[in-house]
Amino acid sequence: MIPIFRRLFIVKLLLVMLFISQAALATPREDAIKSGFLYNFARYSDGDWFNPDIKSTYNICSFNPEFIVAAKNTLKDLTIKKRLINVYLLTSLQENIVDCNTLFLSRGDSEKWALISENKAFINLMLVGEFDGFLASGGHINFFIVGGKVRFEIDPIKLKNSGINMSSKVLRLGRIHERIF
């Protein structure tokens, strides 16, 4: 009897560990943290991608309505280079993204990204994503989760080509794309 109870207990624990796994979508909190990172990426950047003398707002765009809600709450009344942040929901691929200063592509947007990145070289636009292969396909910064926390990998050369000089503080905190260590 004793081994039966022991085995039952261990099997039960393994069942708990293995069989109730469900794919977790980004929570509002995760979206809020990521929008905070977008704010800091813009804050710690210099270059031609955003000129406060000719723009009245700093525009953060996304196709994801849930992200937009979280970002609007998180970034309310904040400014970049003394210009208010405007969080904008893109509703179609045809929409003009030229007015965006940061474009955030969620996990569910990988197909959209494949279409819009096909023939376009993005200048003066910070491209941030959260899915595998984003940097390899032309993105600048890609979020990933480790240890329950948001981390990011970054491609400083592509950023520079888009007119963005990211501060060394950000580069030190991120994982440099294709870095050995």
Partner: peptide, 18 residues
Amino acid sequence: LEELPSLDFDALMAADVQ
């Protein structure tokens, strides 16, 4: 939605997503 403690870079790096 839990309010984030701060939007400081270090605080965001320390924040749990859940």
